[in-house]
Design a protein around this nucleic acid. Structure first.
Lengths: 244, 244
DNA sequence: AATGGCCTTATTGTCGGACAATCATACTAT
DNA sequence: ATAGTATGATTGTCCGACAATAAGGCCATT
């Protein structure tokens, strides 16, 4: 505060309205699932025009703090689903020209602990999802895109089994970013497909038996293996991740 | 496709407009920093009313795909900054009632590899930031909030030194979520403050010397220590993270 | 009782026009 | 070169309007 004035802040009405509603949602005065008042009522309550309200609502809608169920009119308070937040993150990463190497390095950080946690916290339901993912991958030996999707589902199932709700949110954008590169890799390096199947089976087995250390080490090997696959597939690790 | 019709999708005009512009941005036809055409021109180009354009713009603005430089009128194409994305993620986590334990577990996953990477990829500039963070923490022995902020800055500096641009984006929301709990902990458990200082110094030293293994193990110990701090500070690990 | 048709009302999506505030720019005077 | 001034472009906000449609109540049919 040494003699300088702080920059005084303007804020357009639509932004202030959005902030006010967001605050109500974040401090739980508006709970998840509550219907929002109609636009006209919001307009009178805030003392602004309906157009202004609508712009604020678009902002909140884009932030996934409010949503509309399909084929319905009233808005309800929502909470951001993993997939939506992941999409936002994916955009951010893509626009920052994140490279395949960086995404892969993050997977190398996240997945082994995820497997370890899954082995410790598994339940019949979460285990079933992993089993299904492994089976689906091995059944689907036909198309590369399907195989790539199968790889993603396996990681998702393992992450979900760990019981930490932050992990799925964080690695979802990574999986989305890698989807294209994975497809290329599986197409170009046929042995990779088989090795992935073996690794999945081993990891699945370790998680099923509750052997955390084994699950971790196999997962580490599994992720490390991707790097060779990318190199064989001719994917330059230092180019920006390809977008769909 | 077995006899079921796919749900045919309407989409309001403002959403289609937003999607069209977003696509142009994501496929780089509109580059970062490019000015957007004025609203009236967009309206005629899309053949819709300016109100519709404005609602679409609010959506893109909230997604941080477009932004306005302070005190200027024209919109420019932007790319989501770390802080904005982190805020969005923090909201999502908070609304999902994520617990202190979950946040802390993620730090336990992310920070040791971050320290390891920092030791391998450090540069004079990134090292200087870590040095400054350690010094600031040890100078600021007065207020708990300041100390908590210092802890955050240390983690940020280490993450930035690793050179992977995804990591800072991912752990930023975790630090924001933990800020409150850290303040409480530092207030309630005075010895914790000293131990944190020691750990920071050791990690800093290891990174400076390029000793990746030492950096990793000290960071692991450092994060593990937080758990004890939380327990001593009377913070229940299984309650939702406190929001500011 | 459940189902489907019909009507009324409430609400949203979109439009057109309007106006003040203010940013951008060119021009002028010092 | 700098500061003032005039002009046009652009945004923020308002008003009023209307078609389309979701919500909800009522009624007849099965």
């Amino acid at each position: 505060m040494n003699g300088q004035f702080e920059t005084l802040s303007f804020a357009p009405g639509y932004r202030r309205v959005a902030a006010a509603i967001a605050e109500r949602i974040l401090d739980r005065r508006l709970k998840h699932g509550d219907p929002l008042p109609p636009e006209t009522e919001l307009a009178t309550q805030f003392g602004v025009n309906r157009s202004t309200i609508r712009e604020a609502l678009r902002e909140l809608e884009s932030a996934d703090l409010v949503a509309r169920r399909r084929g319905t009119k009233r808005m309800v308070v929502a909470r951001p689903a993993a997939s939506r937040v992941a999409g936002r993150l994916r955009h951010a990463f893509a626009l920052h020209d994140v490279t395949v190497r960086e995404v892969w390095a993050m997977l190398e950080v996240l997945e082994p602990p995820a497997a370890e946690a899954a082995a410790l916290a598994r339940t019949p339901a979460t285990l079933a999802r992993i089993t299904a993912a492994v089976a689906a991958y091995q059944a689907d030996h036909a198309a590369a895109p399907a195989a790539a999707a199968g790889v993603g589902e396996f990681f998702r199932a393992v992450a979900a089994a760990g019981g930490n709700r932050i992990l799925p949110l964080m690695h979802e954008p990574l999986l989305q970013l890698l989807a294209v590169a994975l497809g290329v890799m599986i197409d170009a390096a046929p042995p990779a497909r088989a090795r992935i199947g073996v690794a999945q089976a081993r990891i699945h087995e370790a998680i099923e038996r509750g052997d955390a250390e084994l699950a971790r080490s196999w997962m580490a090997k599994h992720v490390r293996d991707f790097r060779r696959g990318f190199e064989i597939g001719g994917i330059d690790l230092d180019t920006p991740v390809p977008i769909d």
